[in-house]
Simulated assay, not measured.
Amino acid sequence: MTRPVIGIIGNSYELEDRYPVHAGGTMNSEAVAAVAGCIPFIVPSDPRFVSVKELLDTCDGFLLTGGRPNVHPEEYGETPTEAHGAFDRARDAITLPLVRACVERGQPFFGICRGFQEVNVALGGTLHPEIRDLPGRDNHRMPPDGTLEECFALRHHVTFTEGGVFHRLIGAQEVLTNTLHGQGVVRPGRDIVIDGHAPDGTPEAIYVRGAPGFTLSVQWHPEWNATRDPVSRPLFEAFGDAARAWATGEAPPVLRSA
């Protein structure tokens, strides 16, 4: 059987500060290929080059990756400020309608970090520009210096809803994760279920209530060490199973709350 194709949402960069590229982290491709068992396909996330319809017809599922630019606040009815950081309007133009189409069709997606935030915004939710500035909240950002191992080190616990989707899938109600994000969910979007929180109350795991397909998204980065990490591996395995079901026209695995 041909492996399902996973569209990995690419990010825009300038190579050597002058050559524009669309790229995706190697760890994303490794997690998709080695754990999910699918073909990684990097998407040039710009409506000048691809349409949402073409992506839906080409791919069996989508990995909504992390990225430095944030979702533009105009997408959730707010005025941009310096605190909102950098933006990528071209990626917004692809991912937000893509999420809505996948939810409606039952086509699987897995949201990570910015991707987690995109899912919330696509369904009408809002974001904090900088959660570390809120009273009682921790700094969830990547350490400013250090090796990749230090940047992706496990730094805080996430507690899942007892008996919920993530608890049942991973087999533990509390897990230890990395954290590399500045923004966070304020108001959940339509049918967004917050199924896991950090100790400071920051939402860390969500899915879309009633959606016919795989819609799990996390605020941390499970692509790091996905082949060996006991939290990351079942997430990517379940995502791969959902993509295989979509590719063959089978009923998707049931991942809804008990």
Rank of each mutant, 00 (worst) to 15 (best):
L96H: 08
S232C: 11
R168Q: 12
A101N: 11
L235M: 14
R187D: 11
A153D: 14
R89H: 14
V231I: 09
T58F: 13
I131T: 07
P108H: 08
A211K: 10
T248E: 15
G201I: 03
A122L: 08
G240A: 12
P80C: 05
S232M: 04
P69D: 08
I194C: 06
I42S: 12
R233A: 13
N70D: 11
V185M: 15
G125I: 10
G171T: 01
G24E: 11
V186K: 14
R233D: 05
G196E: 01
A198R: 06
A122G: 03
L15D: 05
E75W: 07
P199E: 07
D195T: 01
V231N: 01
I194R: 05
G115F: 02
I170S: 00
E16Y: 12
F160P: 03
G196W: 01
P222W: 04
T2H: 14
A247Q: 14
V43N: 05
V158F: 02
A211T: 12
P199S: 01
P252Y: 02
T58R: 13
H156L: 03
A205L: 05
A247H: 14
P73V: 05
A238N: 00
D191Q: 13
E78N: 04
E130R: 08
L15A: 13
A34F: 10
F62Y: 09
Y76F: 15
D17K: 13
N70V: 07
R89S: 01
D241V: 05
N139C: 10
A205K: 03
G7F: 07
I8K: 04
G25T: 12
D17G: 10
A31P: 09
R137P: 00
L127V: 02
P143F: 14
G67E: 04
E250I: 03
G106N: 09
L96K: 10
M142F: 15
G7M: 04
P234S: 03
V43Q: 09
G115Y: 01
W220E: 07
V175W: 00
S12C: 05
V99W: 10
R137V: 12
A122R: 09
D133C: 09
T2F: 15
R155A: 15
T58I: 00
F116W: 02
H72M: 06
V32H: 09
A205C: 10
H167E: 07
V52K: 01
G124S: 07
T147N: 13
C38H: 11
G249C: 11
A122N: 04
T227P: 02
R91I: 04
D46L: 01
D145G: 10
L123A: 09
P212F: 03
T26L: 15
R89C: 11
C113P: 03
A36T: 03
P203V: 09
D133W: 00
F62S: 00
P135S: 15
H197G: 03
P188I: 02
P73I: 06
G106S: 08
C151T: 14
P135K: 12
D133F: 04
L216F: 00
D200E: 07
P20Q: 00
P97S: 06
A83E: 14
P199R: 06
L169Q: 02
D200K: 08
D57N: 15
F236Y: 12
S45N: 11
G196Y: 01
E149N: 13
E104S: 10
N28L: 09
V50P: 14
R209E: 06
A93E: 11
E75D: 00
